[in-house]
Amino acid sequence: MSEVIVITSGKGGVGKTTTTANVGTGLAQLNKKVVLIDTDIGLRNLDVVMGLENRIVYNLVDVIEGNCRIKQALIKDKKYPNLALLPSAQTRDKSAVSPEQMKKLTDELREEFDYILLDCPAGIEQGFQNAIAGADRAVVVTTPEVSAIRDADRIIGLLEANEIKKIQLIVNRLRMDMVKRGDMMTVEDVCEILSINLIGVVPDDEQIVISTNQGEPLVGSDAMAGRAFSNICKRIAGEDVPFLDLQKKSGVFARLAGLFK
């Protein structure tokens, strides 16, 4: 059975697009049929993060307006033939699409794909309403900062109000060195405040910047963030995977792995 998952955060710049690219690629590595939809009309980015920016012919608005068939607009990934991208339109705005049209589109894509991932724009306006319209479940991305968590709380309230029952949390860009000296909120703090289930913790990792520069998602590599994303994908697919020990050196602080089973 296919699932439509919206990746959202409220605040911009916390890693929604990076998460969408890595989770989508990771699910494709698990041999799932995956399509990524960039719903950020006017601020297209998922294509460059995936390294597919040169292959765009048609986009989301073309599909909605009937200028092309869905198949014509889907871009096949470079490495994984079972992974596709539906890019956003760069020269239009959010009002070009309605929530009803998005729901119809995602329902059509269900016939072909196991997972439909929606990269949601920042904010809570029409772009957000469009992105969540067809979603069965949501992944909320936040960083351990007051502004990101406050916005995540607001988003969770709106998702609940829209009857999206399954809402899970990714804590992104965690810095264990700062947590250890007490200068960053712990994952436990964030989970307690937002009171939703955790599906993954991604450490702050400069490899992510490098992989984005190259347009190749990090998931599947041996880097800490790459491994964290691989585990998130397995959890999304229903596997029970223990949380990574982000303190790779010391055994004394191997608490993170044990705390969130």
């Binding site: 709380d153 947590v179 200068d183 960053m184 909120m185 712990t186």
Partner: peptide
């Protein structure tokens, strides 16, 4: 610790937000 300060401030602000 600034991490604790952040947590406590957030808890307060979310009370009124919610």
């Amino acid at each position: 610790n600034s991490g604790d300060v952040a947590r406590d401030r957030l808890k307060l602000v979310l009370v009124s937000d919610r």
